[in-house]
Design a protein around this nucleic acid. Structure first.
Lengths: 166, 166
DNA sequence: TCTGAAACGCATGCTCT
DNA sequence: AGAGCATGCGTTTCAGA
């Protein structure tokens, strides 16, 4: 299951598929230094054990007509567990909300939203988010420009840590 | 190029590959209702025109040893364009910073960071981020739990908009 | 658990519509 | 621009070390 220790080849597989999720299995096998059959078995195992959650094409949101990206910081009136999960459930059902993170500190949730334009985001904000029971405060910040957007984790950091403490 | 209008089949291809980036071309062709050769040609065109930026395996950061995820809100002393790009360049070189967004409002940048544990994040914070020239204020918030994390854009929103204004 | 061989299915170029 | 066909390559199973 997810907790099985990974060997260096497994980590290399993950790093390669994070960088190029559509790489063929023979190419992957070549890069990690084993033949194709065991490489495929490892990939399947990593998928089944949850180390790999899926594969996704990264599509150009702006070209597709989603011109704005907005972060919303949400404060709730009640932070009882049932109220927290109720809000999370709401977020899962709002398609414009792509990410919802519960945070510590002043704000309860940080939401990453996309929308075709500012007015459609505003109508989501006033018509959906602000009218949700228990939502006390919402501060929104428009993304002016994205400066870095790397998926996943830095495998080089992982490897250097494992080298220093094997 | 990126600006060419997409037809419904192209949008279906993008939606399918966003949901499963490792789908075979014949499966994709079946789902979008054309035969394999033209389907593959469309995919290549979408890749070359920038509608598809890449394919990535979604790896389980926590199981890999990245236990903490932190959002950092950064304020700069000077917002001159050269100072903004200088900070962005710094972010691109910090592996723990996975996303960097320039925002409007009180805060200048929002950073999404990952780290193996709190202490390694703290040493990044005090040793790197806070010692960067021009960084005036940093407020960090730990992610207590992720409630939603969907990649990409909601294609159903796109389709319903196109239906109402074709 | 790996490698190697072999069968099968997919990717992809060509031609025709 | 899409379909059908042909072929070379990738995927996947199986046997054996």
């Amino acid at each position: 299951m997810a907790g099985t220790r990974l060997d260096p080849i497994d980590r290399k597989i993950l790093a390669e598929l994070q960088a190029d999720g559509r790489m063929t299995n023979v190419e992957l096998a070549k890069r990690v230094g084993i033949s194709a059959p065991p490489c495929l078995r490892r990939v399947r195992t990593l998928e089944e054990s949850g180390y790999i959650r899926g594969y996704h094409a990264n599509v150009n949101a702006r070209e597709l007509g989603f011109e704005v990206q907005v972060f919303a910081m949400v404060g709730l009136a009640s932070q009882a567990e049932s109220d927290l999960t109720a809000f999370e459930e709401k977020c899962r059902n709002w398609p414009l909300v792509r990410e919802c993170h519960m945070l510590n500190g002043e704000v309860d949730f940080l939401l990453k939203c996309v929308a075709p334009d500012l007015s459609s985001f505003q109508s989501f904000l006033t018509g959906q988010l602000l009218t949700t029971p228990n939502v006390e405060s919402v501060k929104t910040s428009l993304v002016i420009r994205p400066a870095k957007d790397e998926p996943g984790v830095p495998f080089d950091v992982l490897e250097s840590r494992l080298k220093n403490a094997p």
